[in-house]
């Protein structure tokens, strides 16, 4: 019996999800080796969801140290973890979520990781990293056929961007099928039958999606879209802020950060030739910290995309997801 087959224990544990996505999807998940970069508010939510789904292995890469603030908003950390390495500290609780998954911690700086490190995964999830590193990882992923999804939560705003390469996927559709009875060949009334329908999405490289003032990429191809979701520009503004400051906006210097955000916003909207009014400056008051329930929503979305990316079941988001910080709606935005 090949190891690819599900055991009775797994079938019982994953019963309620196998009934949704089928045993083949579960077997694909079971073979997936995943890298998660960053296990803070959002990262911990993603980790929880994908561990529960029953993957083969998870590497958690984070060089941070647990602060009191981080412990408060991260369910995988207990109080005695404060002051220690975050990647190592989340291990115990992460493992308890699903003892069947092989989990390991890596406390090195993601920037220092070589090409080889990234090549061995089925899919990579990146949170909290700067855009140059993200684009570098995407290049490696493309060369070695590794899927990639990145995302962040800034206050009540959140997003994800996927690069699932040339992604083939299947959907179940109910169709009426005419049947002939086996024993006498008489035509029976048509029966509903589930048929697998194959589709494909070709994802653009991330350097054609995330174009910031200094990326030296032409924005022309993605500029033409008339009704670009305004939160796409909010996402770019926040990424550019992180690139410049090496950190996320921080309430302890709120005024300074809001001013810088306004400046960056102007640059970006000019670059894309979009009216300044498209993005309201008031939004910059609610981009501080990671609001836990927003991490739960965006972490749920990203984990579900990872599951789709791995299992090749159901249509994934193509290619940007934007969580509206005011209405709490969540929409797909196709860029490039």
């Amino acid at each position: 019996m090949s190891e690819k087959q599900l055991s009775a224990v797994e079938a019982e544990l994953y019963d309620r999800q196998i009934r949704l996505w089928g045993i083949e999807s579960q077997e694909r998940l079971r073979a997936a080796n995943i890298l998660l970069i960053g296990v803070r508010g959002l990262g911990s939510e993603i980790a929880k969801n994908i561990l529960l789904s029953g993957i083969n292995s998870l590497v958690i890469l984070d060089d941070g140290v647990v602060t009191e603030e981080e412990q408060h908003k991260n369910f995988l950390l207990n109080r005695d973890s404060i002051g220690k390495k975050i990647a190592e500290e989340v291990l115990i609780k992460a493992q308890a979520l699903n003892p069947l998954v092989k989990i390991s911690a890596d406390t090195s700086n993601p920037v220092k990781k070589d090409t080889k490190f990234f090549e061995s995964f089925t899919i990579i999830i990146a949170t909290g990293i700067k855009s140059d590193l993200l684009l570098r990882i995407d290049k490696i992923c493309r060369a070695s056929k590794v899927k990639l999804i990145c995302g962040d939560v800034f206050g009540t705003f959140g997003y994800s961007v996927s690069d699932f390469l040339d992604h083939e996927y299947f959907e179940d559709q109910l169709k009426l099928v005419a049947k002939k009875r086996t024993h006498d060949g008489i035509e029976e009334k048509p029966e509903k039958e589930t048929v697998k329908v194959r589709s494909e999405i070709v994802y653009p490289e991330l350097n054609k999606v995330i174009i910031l003032p200094n990326t030296k990429q032409s924005v022309e191809p993605i500029k033409k879209v008339k009704r670009r979701n305004e939160y796409f520009f909010l996402m770019l503004t926040l990424l550019e802020f992180r690139d410049r400051e090496g950190r996320n906006p921080d309430v302890s210097h709120k005024e300074k950060d809001v001013n810088l955000l306004k400046e960056i916003k102007k640059e970006i909207l000019t670059l894309y030739n979009v009216d300044e009014k498209k993005l309201n400056d008031d939004l910059f008051n609610i981009v501080f910290g990671e609001v836990v329930p927003v991490c739960a929503v965006v972490g749920g979305v990203i984990a579900q995309e990872v599951i789709k990316g791995v299992s090749q079941k159901e249509a994934p988001i193509n290619n940007v997801f934007l969580f509206d910080p005011l209405t709490y709606c969540g929409k797909e935005e196709t860029v490039a």
Binding site: R16, R19, S53, T156, V291, P293, V294, V297, G300
Partner: peptide, 24 residues
Amino acid sequence: KSIAGNIIPAIATANAMIAGLVVL
């Protein structure tokens, strides 16, 4: 079993999203 037991499939991600919105 699905039909006889009236089983509704359930996944962690959908619950996480809905519970996030509940608290928001």
